[in-house]
């Protein structure tokens, strides 16, 4: 075992892995994290704790991950390259490991200009860091874990033992380069990969085949990302505006049909769309797990953590495997 994390154990056991996502709140409210952690606990093998997603200030990933851990939910802390230089990153790895965290997802992070969206003022004038990028961050973590060395070369008496993750946008462009982009992350040392949300399973199959041809599925655990759709509007938005995401017309139409079935009753329209969204998610989860080389799913129910229980059960992925310490 590289880290001994629950996620690593599930993957090593050959069971399909399930990860979920927990978004920390925009205030110092630990109860929000505790509530969400308890909604997810038992229904996933580990939950990603986002690191100021969309560049919005929230409880830090490490702090929220520690709260989740105390609640009995295994966290996957996230670290963006946007906010820290290599000194802060490594200091945080040491601290996180000392607190008992065992998984980390390395990501570039949304640009700070994203933070001023909708009604939020955000911090679009912030200075970003990008001292290192995702591949380099993965490499730094691996060097710390496997060689007991800091990036600069200084020795670590006690090395932080993380199960190292990276993200992949399989359908982003330039699409023919994406498999190589994945290979670089695997070469750098990514133990597991969580993909961008996938709705177009056929296209994902094509990209997975290319990844398999490079032998990547044997060197890393591929977890297919599924973002639970809440409404037809959300699917349309994701299709038109989110990089690397395309949503087949058929799925949008199914959600529109669910919405229309409620007539003028807005509350019912919300309910019916949410039900259809969960149904679509369950289908996508099953389809993804049928693709050769896919070792699990990363189900993101954004600000809707309570949906995970139903989805995981309906997909036949409950109960989750349990391992002794």
């Amino acid at each position: 075992m590289k880290s001994g994390s629950n996620l690593e154990k599930v993957i090593a056991s050959g069971n399909p892995a399930v990860t979920a996502e927990l978004g920390p709140p925009m205030s110092a409210d630990a109860h929000e994290v505790i509530k969400k952690a308890n909604q997810l606990k038992g229904f996933c093998d580990a939950a990603n704790i986002t690191d100021c997603q969309t560049a919005v200030v929230r409880i830090s990933s490490i702090a929220a991950a520690y709260i989740a851990l105390k609640e009995g939910l295994e966290p996957v802390m996230q670290m963006t390259c946007r906010d820290r230089n290599r000194i802060a990153m490594q200091a945080d790895f040491l601290g996180a490991a000392a607190l008992g965290l065992k998984n980390c997802l390395c990501i570039a992070g949304d640009h700070q200009s994203f933070s001023a969206a909708g009604r939020l003022k955000g911090h679009p004038g912030a200075k970003n860091v990008y001292d290192v990028d995702t591949c380099q961050l993965v490499g730094i973590m691996k060097k710390m874990r496997d060689e007991g060395l800091q990036q600069g070369g200084d020795k670590l008496e006690v090395a932080p033992k993380f199960f190292i993750g990276a993200s992949w946008t399989p359908m982003g462009d330039p699409i023919d380069f994406r498999p190589y982009n994945l290979k670089k992350k695997v070469d750098a040392g990514a133990d597991f990969i969580q993909t961008q949300g996938i709705y177009d399973m056929e296209l994902f199959k094509v990209q997975m085949e290319k990844a398999r041809n490079l032998g990547l599925h044997e060197r890393t655990a591929m977890l297919a990302g599924i973002i639970v759709p809440k409404s037809a509007m959300m699917l349309k938005y994701m299709d038109s505006s989110v990089a690397g995401v395309t949503v087949p017309k058929e799925l949008i139409n199914r959600m529109l049909k669910a919405k229309d079935a409620a007539g003028d009753d807005k509350k019912k329209a919300k309910e019916l769309q949410e039900q259809e969204g969960m149904k679509i998610t369950v289908e996508l989860v099953k389809q993804a797990l049928d693709i050769p080389g896919v070792k699990g799913v990363h189900i993101q129910a954004i600000e809707w953590e309570s949906a995970i229980e139903h989805i995981v059960k309906a997909a036949g992925l409950y109960p989750r495997p349990v391992f002794s310490e």
Binding site: A108, D110, H111, Y130, D133, T134, C135, Q136, S167, W168, T169, G172, D173, P174, F177, N181, K184, A188, Q196, A243, G244
Partner: peptide, 9 residues
Amino acid sequence: LMNGPCGGT
């Protein structure tokens, strides 16, 4: 980024 592109393309 030195090893791009990121997922934002």
